[in-house]
């Protein structure tokens, strides 16, 4: 048995599939693909798969992955091909690789947020402040006000018809920051914009290299 990761994208309509529904989708996709994924044992056996990093409802992604164990002989190319055949067009398969890193070595994710805003300067100004305070739910359910200024990496704002906000945020089992939290905080500061789309571009390790 070996551990592999299947990398795929989630585009267009697929963004309306919630994480919970993705899970059920994957179970059925594995079944239709005929890929010898290891099943759990017991009363109600099902394919054992884990999502590297759950994606919020409404987000697109260029780089998402699931991990599973393969029983028996099948090349990564063939596995990828089989998934390609059963995934919808809105979820193109990038490929299959043997796991290089452990899931806990995932540290960051990069995002592109496309906005419509009349006042670009207001957005610039928001990110140039000394601190950026957001409300964040802790694991215990209480809400904390925290400064996340230091946690935003590689921030950039470009304009090309719409505004594009690029940033790298902590992601993974230890720390996680969802860009929606920042957008909510911006709204509270009366920064005016509408969200056109949010896309998670890449998953990254501690050195900002691609997570594989």
């Amino acid at each position: 048995m070996r551990n592999v990761r299947l990398f795929y994208q989630k585009k267009g309509n697929a963004k309306y599939i919630s994480h919970l529904d993705m899970n059920r989708f994957m179970m059925r996709a594995v079944k239709r693909s005929g890929v010898p994924v290891w099943y759990t044992e017991g009363f109600n056996p099902h394919p054992f798969i884990t999502f590297t990093m759950p994606l919020s409802l409404g987000f697109e992604t260029n780089y998402d992955s699931i991990e599973f164990k393969i029983e028996g002989e099948m090349t990564n190319e063939e596995i990828a091909e089989r998934f390609r055949n059963v995934f919808p067009a809105t979820m193109p398969v990038i490929g299959v690789k043997d796991c290089v890193l452990k899931s806990k070595e995932l540290k960051y994710a990069s995002f592109t947020i496309t906005l419509q805003a009349a006042d670009r300067e207001a957005i610039n100004a928001y990110f140039e402040k000394d601190e950026i305070i957001v409300s964040k739910k802790t694991k215990k359910g209480t809400i904390n006000q925290i400064d996340i200024k230091e946690k935003i990496h590689n921030l950039s704002l470009t304009e090309n018809g719409a505004l594009r906000l690029y940033m790298v945020l902590p992601a993974g089992s230890e720390e996680n920051l969802n860009p929606a939290v920042i957008l909510d905080a911006m709204k509270l500061q009366a920064v005016q914009f509408t969200i056109v789309g949010i896309s998670r571009n890449e998953l990254l390790d501690k050195d900002f290299n691609l997570f594989e």
Partner: peptide, 23 residues
């Protein structure tokens, strides 16, 4: 358009009810 659709379901609880694209 996709953009119009996403605006329509922006505050809708279960957009999957209307999104289509199912297998």
């Amino acid at each position: 358009t996709d953009l119009e659709f996403s605006k329509l379901v922006e505050n809708v609880q279960k957009p999957g009810r209307y999104a289509g694209g199912e297998l």
